[in-house]
Amino acid sequence: MTRVSGRIVTPDAVVTGHLDLDDDLIAAIVPDETAGDDVIVPGFVDLHCHGGGGHTFTTGSAPAAREAAAFHLRHGTTTIMASLVSSPFALMRSAVDDYRPLVDDGTLAGIHFEGPYLSGIRCGAQNPAFLRDPSMAEITELVSEGSGVVRMMTIAPELPGALEAITYLRDHDVLAAIGHTDATYDQTHAGVAAGATVATHLFNGMRPLHHREPGPVVGLLSSTATVELIADNIHLHPGMLAFAARDAGPDRAILITDAMDATGMPDGRYELGGQEVIVADRVARLAVNGSIAGSTLTMDVALRNAVTAGLPLIDAARMASTTPARLLGLTKTLGALTPGLRADLVILTPDLTLKSVLRSGTRIS
């Protein structure tokens, strides 16, 4: 039996006491006011990450993906999705086969295809050379051959054939996300009605809101969709992060990194989806036009930034772990500090600085 002591953040309360671990599972929470002031939160679940530690998910390379996942694991992300950017179909198809062993062994929770069925007007750092309207032939092949591997796909709902594609994804247990979109408010709601359940990095890569045409931001916040928020204080002002998180609530808002391979690396020149990216003072921008190109964020910092922005620690932990785990259908296994669940936990100092990580009860760092 292993014991971890401190302020234990459960889905409903912060309990000062001991977390007892029995091999890879949480056995019990034992209250004890003398247990110390370390903060213990569930292992983070990142649904949107392109890489880190100098390694990328975007090229479909299994060795690179394994290293990127290991980098984020050391920062507390015990469950991670490999997000690709807009790419030729051949790369998307090969990634399904190459990443399957990593899904099977638990290194990855699956693949998120962010594109290529996105708006050219709102492409952001997506490579416009690879953008195209939704192709049911491509999507059906990816989903059928990638059963259990392809877990999410981002689509702009205003594109021809998008609603059919979204419904198909929903009906085949793949999360359909709305993002990189110039959709109107009504088109956004049509996408949600068709089956979309996630908003890809809310605000970023979207038509700005306007009081006469609310657009996708208000459309998504006013819907049942869960909204992704990049809490790096670059993509979103802390005030806007707090506003969106409070509006959606911790059961409909999740923290993501949108991290690229430059995360944890020195400033310099990098590549994303065939385009050059320059990283300076932790901000990644396309060399060609200065568009923000992903982040250099880790989930431990995202949690701290969310709390600093004014969100309660319990809510921030739910947004970083419990709610994304629910989207993936994993709440019977992980995502919270609850007896019977997998012993994935992150130990933080009182000021929420990373101290240690355990996955399945095994200390990682």
Rank of each mutant, 00 (worst) to 15 (best):
residue 190 A to F: 05
residue 191 G to L: 10
residue 192 V to A: 04
residue 192 V to Y: 00
residue 194 A to Q: 02
residue 196 A to K: 03
residue 200 T to Y: 01
residue 203 F to Q: 03
residue 203 F to D: 00
residue 203 F to W: 13
residue 204 N to P: 00
residue 206 M to T: 06
residue 206 M to A: 10
residue 208 P to V: 10
residue 208 P to T: 10
residue 209 L to V: 10
residue 210 H to Y: 02
residue 210 H to G: 14
residue 211 H to A: 08
residue 211 H to R: 04
residue 212 R to P: 00
residue 214 P to T: 00
residue 214 P to L: 04
residue 215 G to K: 08
residue 216 P to Y: 02
residue 216 P to T: 06
residue 218 V to I: 14
residue 220 L to T: 05
residue 220 L to S: 11
residue 222 S to C: 14
residue 223 S to K: 07
residue 225 A to W: 03
residue 225 A to E: 09
residue 228 E to K: 12
residue 229 L to W: 01
residue 230 I to V: 15
residue 232 D to V: 13
residue 233 N to T: 14
residue 233 N to G: 01
residue 234 I to G: 05
residue 234 I to W: 02
residue 234 I to P: 02
residue 235 H to V: 13
residue 235 H to E: 09
residue 236 L to E: 07
residue 236 L to M: 07
residue 237 H to I: 10
residue 237 H to S: 12
residue 238 P to F: 04
residue 239 G to C: 02
residue 239 G to H: 12
residue 239 G to F: 11
residue 240 M to H: 02
residue 242 A to M: 10
residue 243 F to Y: 15
residue 244 A to H: 05
residue 248 A to N: 04
residue 249 G to W: 14
residue 251 D to V: 05
residue 252 R to Q: 14
residue 252 R to P: 05
residue 252 R to M: 07
residue 252 R to Y: 06
residue 253 A to T: 09
residue 254 I to C: 08
residue 255 L to M: 12
residue 256 I to C: 09
residue 256 I to F: 00
residue 256 I to R: 09
residue 256 I to V: 15
residue 257 T to C: 13
residue 258 D to R: 14
residue 259 A to Y: 03
residue 262 A to L: 11
residue 262 A to I: 13
residue 262 A to P: 06
residue 266 P to R: 14
